[in-house]
Amino acid sequence: MPRCVERKWNLRPMLSLADLQMRFAEALRTDSAWPRRMLRAGPCPVEECLDIYRANVIGAVTNALALSHPTVVRLVGESFFGRLGRDYAFDAPPRSGCLWHYGDGFADFLARDARTHALPYLADVARLDRILDRVGNAAPSEPPRRFVLDARTQLELESSLQLLELEWPADEIRAAIERDEDLLEQIDLKPVRRTRVVWRSASGVMMRPLGDASYAFLRALLDGASVEEAFLAAIDHAPQAVGDMDQEVLRAPYARVSLIGEAAS
């Protein structure tokens, strides 16, 4: 029930600012009618003035999503992307004024949306777009993440490092979109589990495939496991691929084994 305060001079009840803002936001979200007596406009009807605010909100959200999902925009076109963005905005509106936080759930939204079922790879493309954007815009000066190997040595991982698990060849699709869309025809659209590591280096955002053992090892580390626990996870998931971890992780450009207390080079 909205709280009311009384105006000093005419005792006409009015909404508190908190309730007014809640009602206004609800009118934007649901297209619900706003009590006409509460708003004034000029020659343009109040409802159509609210359309301007609604369009501004949708435009800002869609623009933020488009910036972080460029491949999805290219695949579905700006018009359809705009409709997806509108529905996502009202399904999962932003939580903060920093819109670069926004869109973490967009891939899952696409996976659920019946309109995109003809493009089963679209959600994975969105996941890839999103993670490349996040890594590319990660703070550059963060110290590496460190994991103790033994009493003297530690494993250092790039602070920007992210892992990605895909079912569809989203990286091939993105590469084709960026270079030559004709290459899309040549991509084998077969659902197969693919694991990738993404990080930011001095020369830009890098991505490499990972074997199952390396993925399980890094996944466990990033989820808070010790090196020993992570190693056991790797053995558990892919004992035959543990040998690949030396090249894929320990000697990878995103990792470094250093003496504990040694300054990073």
Partner: peptide
Amino acid sequence: SWSQVGDTHWPDLLPLPYTEEALDV
């Protein structure tokens, strides 16, 4: 203007009523 209500941020410069309460806020 305002944009945040509860845990939702509507990314536009939404209008404030020009009232004493809004001024206090």
